[in-house]
Design a protein around this nucleic acid. Structure first.
Length: 436
RNA sequence: GCGGCUAUAGUUCAGCGGCAGAACGCCUGACUGUGGCUCAGGAUGUCGUGGGUUCGAUCCCCACUAGCCGCCCCA
């Protein structure tokens, strides 16, 4: 029988890499906290209809990338229900906002999440079928200021801070406005009309996209098509006065805060719910998956899934890609170093094993990270193991047990001393404080 | 869903139609209570899975599976 393996597109995360994941999440929590966001945890699966209505029936995510199944009825009277592993988290957050009537509080809701999402795509570097996203949403009634351009700018400024604090070097913010729900059809009609006479001269992909999803034509990277694309109408020219003003206010606030960005009139996002501001933070070195995070405003999403009017803006960041980027910046080695134990407790002779556990318990209760050896090991072997696992070793043999003076050797300095048992924890804590 | 490349020790990888290799790591000893450096020895493995060609296949052929890269799409 073949051993079972993790299913395609999923993987195990293990030390030392998990230390890097934890560090990323700790930095994100710290930044979100300072911007006064609270954490939300929504279920990993939801009613399929939530994604069909929220994300958009015609998007690739919904039409071919979801893990969907029919939940079986447990009684004759019970109906079966179509359930889906969440492919993204914004729809779930907005569903919770509606379900718990958060709009009735009158307050702006600022929520962040960290958790796994699922899409049945072909796996490749930085893209897995179970992947983790870190995201946040600002949503609320219009009278709470949810529609304000200041909220867009604040979210973008927060993201710039987050990427800086994570230590991501060389990111780029791309910014665009796709207009209101009313602007979209107007622009689509113009775009289709303009494509009509020229699409025949474009690449096969574009000819297909012109039919299925004309906005994606703007994303085409084929060099020969670029002059044609440059001649197509720009979405920015189809915005109504209010959208135009909103976008100008976002840019003004970013300029005032000193957050750099690049206007990209071709930045259209794949999800149906986006309105007005759309953005993407990109980074080189990720191959075809160069987007670290993306997001935008979704003023109509709540209504699309049956809720009250609740404009909002949010983003989702691919945590797997952040890890890749940071690991490439040698952060992984530092994370691995942080995993070293403070001390290795080495009993000498099996008769000291019981006493060694008691000693390890004392040290661990004092807050030290402790690896416990085994008295069956020869002392040389204990030292070898300790050198790999910890910053220092404590020997507990017959001499030490009799005298109460423990032998401690610090590997960084190679200095060996005798320390009274009562002072051991404090002395090790002091040593740790020095090296960190 | 489509195309290209890849799959050999714990890891990174070499290799050849006829006994399975290196480096690092691991184990043992030099050193009976002292790591790192050195030296001497040792163990690794259904050569991804299944089929075919052949006297003989890890090697050649086919299929499958998985990974990587790209496309589609997206975070």
């Amino acid at each position: 029988m073949n051993p079972l393996k993790a299913v395609r597109g999923t993987r195990d995360l293990m030390p030392p890499e998990t230390a890097l994941w934890n560090r990323i999440e700790a930095v994100a929590r710290s930044v979100f906290g300072r911007y006064n966001f609270g954490e939300i945890r929504t279920p990993i699966f939801e009613d399929t209809a939530l994604f069909a209505r929220g994300v958009g029936e015609e998007t690739d995510i919904v039409s071919k990338e979801m893990y969907t199944w029919e939940d079986r009825a447990r009684a004759q009277s019970e109906k079966t229900q179509s359930l889906t592993l969440r492919p993204e988290n914004t729809a779930g957050v907005v569903r919770a906002y509606i379900e718990h009537k958060l709009g009735e509080t009158g307050q702006l809701q600022k929520l962040f999440y960290i958790g796994p999402q699922f899409r049945r795509e072909r796996p490749q570097k930085g893209r897995y079928r179970q992947f983790s996203q870190i995201g946040a949403e600002v949503i609320g009634p219009a009278h709470a200021g949810a529609e304000s351009a200041l909220r867009d700018a604040e979210v973008l400024e927060m993201l710039a801070t987050l990427l800086d604090e994570l230590g991501i070097e060389g990111w780029t913010l791309k910014l665009n406005s796709v207009g209101s729900a009313a602007d979209r059809p107007v622009y689509l009609a113009k775009l289709k009309a303009a494509l009509g006479p020229v699409v025949g001269g474009m690449c096969a992909d574009c000819q297909r996209r012109a039919e299925t999803n004309p906005l994606r034509v703007l994303d085409c990277k084929v060099p020969e098509d670029q002059p044609i694309i440059d001649g197509l109408p720009r979405i920015g020219d189809s915005l109504d006065a209010a959208s135009r003003e909103h976008f100008a206010a976002v840019r003004a606030a970013l300029d005032a805060a000193g957050v750099g960005y690049t206007l990209d009139h071709r930045l259209v996002r794949g999800l149906d719910y986006y309105t007005r501001t759309t953005f993407e933070f990109t980074h080189g070195g990720l191959g075809a998956q160069n987007a670290l995070l993306g997001g935008g405003r979704y003023d109509g999403l709540s209504e699309a899934i049956g809720g009250p009017k609740a404009p909002g803006i949010g983003f989702a960041m691919g945590e797997d890609r952040l890890v890749l980027t940071l690991a490439a910046q040698l952060e992984a080695q530092q994370a691995a170093r942080a995993e070293l134990a403070d001390v290795y407790v080495a009993p000498v002779g099996e008769r000291q094993n019981a006493a060694a556990l008691a000693l390890a318990r004392e040290l661990r209760r004092a807050g030290l990270r402790v690896e416990l050896g085994d008295g069956a090991f020869r002392v040389k072997k204990s030292f070898e193991a300790a050198d790999k696992a910890a910053r220092a070793i404590v020997l507990l043999g017959e001499d030490e047990a009799a005298s109460g003076m423990l032998t401690v050797k610090d590997f960084a300095t190679a200095v060996q001393t005798k320390v009274p048992r009562a002072e051991l924890a404090n002395s090790l804590l002091a040593a740790r404080a020095e090296t960190k």
